[in-house]
């Protein structure tokens, strides 16, 4: 796989609005990425941000990046780009979700094999090796629905049954509902205020559905407090989970040390962003705190 570590320009061929907050920029080209990976998206003279890939289709020659308008830079991505404009991309970076029953793929070992985290990871790998996935659940919170979308397309291509959960605050923020239904996913929606789908947290629907029928694997991306609940539910139900964690990133290729997790030192840009639920739960940071661009800790 070709990885760009100096930005390469990609031209926008189409812009699609997915919700009142999220816009998908469709670029000409392909990165030959795997669901769960991300790019560093560069707006010259402004900034560069890590964005997860929401579809990468070599046949159509399209890269989709679904971006939430939540800050000054993402606002420019969402509101100021026009068809025909170009942006720079580095990547694709990081680990990916696994649809074959193994744990998240990692390009490098984090620690030596004497490390308990590593050992448990390996044990989980071997237990799941060779297992065929038939039915999986994907839980997206807000813009976390974007990498779940890419994964859902891949899962459906392999004939895997997909429960696709969308959790947002209110009706205007619901995204991909019709599209995911159209590719054959079972779609569940929750809004905090009950304006669309069920009222409450999406994790409540997940828990209710799992009580009726278990799935082979759970994937999640979204706000960390939501993912913590998902990881706990997965553990309680003894279902393997894969979590896409996010921390402030600079280099994207594992050298700056900005996104290392406590206490393993796992680099989320390199051995993440996709890690097993088990490994996430072992990190004392998960659901508790994160560091800003200076390295100062903040609680969730």
């Amino acid at each position: 796989m070709k990885v760009y570590d100096i930005p390469k320009d990609f031209k926008i061929k189409e812009i699609v609005r997915n919700s009142s907050q999220v816009v998908t920029l469709i670029f000409e080209g392909t990165l030959n990425s795997i669901p769960g990976q991300f790019v560093m998206l560069w707006l010259p003279e402004v900034d560069e941000k890590p964005i997860s890939i929401s579809l990468d289709d070599p046949e159509k020659n399209e890269i989709h990046l679904s971006i939430a308008d939540i800050g000054p830079v993402t606002h420019k991505f969402c509101e100021e780009m026009k068809v025909g404009d170009s942006l720079g991309m580095r990547g694709p970076y990081g680990t990916s979700f696994s649809l074959s029953g193994e744990a998240a793929r990692s390009s490098e070992s984090v620690t030596t094999s004497s490390d308990p985290v590593q050992q448990s990871h390996a044990v989980q790998d071997s237990e799941q090796a060779g297992m065929t996935l038939q039915h999986v659940a994907m839980i997206g919170g807000g813009c976390g629905c974007a990498p779940m979308r890419y994964l859902a397309y891949e899962a459906r291509k392999k004939g895997v049954e997909v429960d696709y959960y969308i959790g947002v605050r209110t009706k205007d923020l619901v995204m991909f509902e019709e599209e995911m239904t159209s590719i054959g996913c079972n779609v569940f929606v929750s809004t905090d205020d009950g304006t669309h789908g069920e009222k409450g947290f999406i994790t409540q629907q997940l828990e209710k559905n799992l009580a009726a029928k278990k799935v082979d694997k759970i994937y999640t991306c979204g706000p960390e407090m939501m993912m913590k609940v998902v990881a706990d539910i997965a553990q309680k139900n003894e279902i393997p989970a894969e979590i896409s964690m996010e921390r402030y990133m600079k280099c994207g290729f594992g050298i700056c040390g900005q996104c290392c997790l406590d206490d393993s030192g796992l680099r989320l840009c390199k051995e993440g962003p996709v890690i097993t639920g088990e490994r996430a739960l072992q990190s004392k940071e998960f659901g508790n705190y994160h560091r800003d661009k200076m390295g100062i800790k903040h609680s969730f």
Binding site: V110, T111, I255, C256, G257, Q258, C260, L261, D262, D263, S264, G265, L266, R267, R291, G295
Partner: peptide
């Protein structure tokens, strides 16, 4: 300047 932000990063 390389991986030296946190104790966990340096320990790794």
């Amino acid at each position: 300047g390389i991986l030296g932000v946190t104790a966990a990063g340096m320990t790794n």
